[in-house]
């Protein structure tokens, strides 16, 4: 999965690998809804469940 909007966290600069809803380092919320992403076919809720 590499369709997330950010290649790096806009707050702390952490290089994002794969799909991230929150930055693992500074805990910044990166995506709040699916439309903010560039086209991942899955739903954010599914990731949250995982």
């Amino acid at each position: 999965m590499s369709c997330s909007k950010f290649k790096s966290c806009p707050q702390c600069g952490y290089k994002i690998e794969g799909f991230k809803i929150k930055c693992p380092r500074c805990n910044k919320v990166l995506l709040k809804k699916c439309s903010e992403c560039n086209g991942c076919k899955l739903n954010i809720k599914d990731f949250k469940k995982k």
């Binding site: 790096s8 707050q11 702390c12 600069g13 952490y14 290089k15 380092r25 500074c26």
Partner: peptide, 12 residues
């Protein structure tokens, strides 16, 4: 100020 010890930018 940094969010972690690494080298993602000059300040870090």
């Amino acid at each position: 100020g940094v969010y972690g010890v690494s080298s993602f930018n000059d300040e870090e």
